[in-house]
């Protein structure tokens, strides 16, 4: 009995559904913006058909790709990045400077190691020269600024603890240079050939 009632109800509902008009969904078209077509003087026309007739047009050989982005990338990688990175490279180089005492002389030895990946990109030459030697016990002493790597410098003291203010100059691409100043502390002992060194950059 219950099943019959349910069936009758379902049939009624179905009949009602069929009587209903089909559901109409209105899709509102997006409003089209009113805007003047692009044209002179803001825009230049490269190719065009007649305004009232479409047709096949010929085009010229496309120009080579704009090299500006490539140029910018080249400048950044060769000029800007090295000037940022190379002072650190110079510090690295400096940490390899070996100082030793030879009868009152310090020899700055350019044992240029260089990191392979930097060498692979840029041909870099590092020049290191001493600007000033400070000591805790003696007044500051300034050596000849024209000294280069490998030059012998006569020390003002025989032994002690020194700060060497050195100027590191990095030349890359053979003509661009960057300079950085580093503080190197050196302990000089009369009977030791190799002295301790450390760099503070």
């Amino acid at each position: 009995m219950v099943e019959e009632e349910e069936r009758a109800k379902a049939e009624e509902e179905l009949a009602e559904e069929e009587e209903k008009p089909p559901l109409v969904v209105s899709i509102k078209e997006e409003e089209v913006e009113e805007r003047e077509p692009p044209g002179p003087p803001e825009y230049e026309v490269i190719y065009q058909t007649p305004p009232d007739k479409g047709m096949v047009l010929k085009y010229r050989e496309p120009p080579p790709k704009d090299v500006k982005p490539l140029l910018v990338a080249l400048i950044v990688t060769t000029l800007v990045l090295p000037s940022v990175l190379l002072p650190d490279l110079a510090a690295y180089e400096l940490s390899r400077v070996i100082c030793w005492q030879e009868g009152g002389f310090i020899v700055l030895d350019s044992s240029r190691g260089g990191k392979g990946f930097i060498d692979g990109i840029i041909k870099a030459f590092t020049a290191v020269r001493i600007l000033r030697i400070d000591t805790k016990v003696k007044p500051s002493w300034e050596c000849d600024k024209s000294l280069k790597v490998g030059d012998k410098i006569e020390l003002p003291v025989e032994e002690g603890f020194y700060y060497l203010i050195v100027e590191t100059e990095v030349t890359y691409l053979y003509f661009f240079r960057t300079k950085a100043y580093r503080l190197v502390s050196v302990n000089v002992f009369p009977n030791m050939r190799v002295v301790k060194y450390e760099s503070k950059g």
Partner: peptide, 12 residues
Amino acid sequence: YDAVPCQIIRKV
């Protein structure tokens, strides 16, 4: 279908 009038443009 039909070919339609067109312009190739570039900002000055």
